[in-house]
């Protein structure tokens, strides 16, 4: 184990440094979320994330003071029509591509709400990228029956 450490350090040094898009190259549009009933149920937020840069970007995490735990989750429906939801892990956004967080697919899952999500208000959400860049955005809260950012 002792010998491995310098080896790993050298290997890391020799490997081409991965390139990541800076936060200037990431734009977020159409962010929205649904109002909650109290704080016992989790909330969800949606948005489109564009990577306008020339390098890939990896969205690794989320943080917000609204929820003690915020993660990107994915809802999927299998061939037997059973719908399930699970953490989606890191979301890679290739250069020039767009990733949509929308109902029935990827979404920001807001667990352990610290306060109710009230229609007409908004909350601040930070997107964390693998290169350490962070993007903070304001997410408007729509009605509980909203179907999109315009509702």
């Amino acid at each position: 184990m002792k010998n491995l450490v310098p080896f790993a350090a050298v290997a890391a040094f020799l490997m081409p440094a991965p390139l990541f898009a800076g936060s200037d190259d990431i734009t977020v549009e159409n962010a929205w979320s649904r109002a909650s009933i109290g704080t016992s149920r989790p909330g969800a937020a949606y948005m489109t994330i564009h990577n306008t840069g020339e390098d890939a970007a990896s969205l690794t995490g989320l943080s917000t003071d609204l929820a003690a735990m915020a993660e990107i989750h994915r809802s999927t429906t299998n061939e037997e029509n059973v719908t399930s939801m699970a953490p989606a892990g890191t979301i890679d956004i290739p250069a020039g591509e767009t990733v949509a967080l929308e109902p029935g697919g990827l979404h920001a899952m807001l667990m352990q709400l610290q306060r109710p999500m009230i229609e007409g208000e908004s909350f601040s959400l930070t997107l964390e990228f693998s290169d350490g860049e962070e993007i903070e955005l304001e997410v408007p809260i729509r009605g509980i029956a909203a179907r999109g950012p315009q509702d």
Partner: peptide, 17 residues
């Protein structure tokens, strides 16, 4: 189930429309 943040509100919102 009502503790579902995603598919159920979406289904209910769809049905409402």
């Amino acid at each position: 189930f009502t503790y579902c943040p995603e598919v159920c509100p979406t289904t209910l919102a769809d049905i409402s429309t």
